[in-house]
Amino acid sequence: MLTGAGPVFRRELAGYFATPVAYVFIVGFLLLAGILTFYVGNLFERGQADLKPFFAFHPWLYIVLMPAVAMRLWAEERRSGTIELLLTLPVQVAGVVVGKFLAAWAFTAAALGLTFPVWITVNVLGDPDNGVVLAGYIGSLLMAGGYLAICACLSSLTRNQVVAFVVGVVACLLFTVAGSPIVLDAVSGWAPSALVDAVASFSFLSRFAAIMNGVIDLRDAVFFASLIAFWLFANAVVVDLGKAG
């Protein structure tokens, strides 16, 4: 069913570290996360031993950084012609799609894991609820997977990485704020309220807000898992359509 996922996963993951991309991304992510947490989120001044100011900025960081991680997954294969090599190996499209996505997700997990000094900091200064912190990390990773699946699919639509990046940022932004007037105003004027509610339910922000408070609701976990599955399926359809010419 997923023939080829393993080798593709290992190649893609090694590919991040073969170029400066991985190091630039990780340093950038840690710097931005740190600045936002301590200067904008005022972690110290709040006087509370929790990581809310840290997690609260993750959706906004991911809007820009996840498209950067995923943009090369397919666009580069198309531009350089290696997609022809890859898809004529005895591998299945679904395997390649999953392998590439998991590599991007594992890389993101590594970057997220490297934020552990923030967690140590609050544990030294106070006595946080580490269950809530763990929920925050799990939720953040799930949300990152959602962004990555969207951006991987968009990357398969173009051979230009810049196009993949910009379209990815816009799509991620729309999903993030789906529950806010930015998106709902465009829908609520004409659509039935059920549809408006459906659009609003796609909001990453409101889903993540609940998780950040330490509540991993099964519905939110299922939401992110099915969102990932849907976009990976779309990704495989796009790659298959490419074969039809």
Binding site: R11, A14, G15, A18, T19, S80, G81, T82, E84, L85, T88
Partner: peptide
């Protein structure tokens, strides 16, 4: 099948 596509594409950073 062994296949050498047109232009012999390979992954440049490997």
């Amino acid at each position: 099948i062994g296949y050498l596509p047109e232009g012999a594409p390979t992954y440049p950073d490997m």
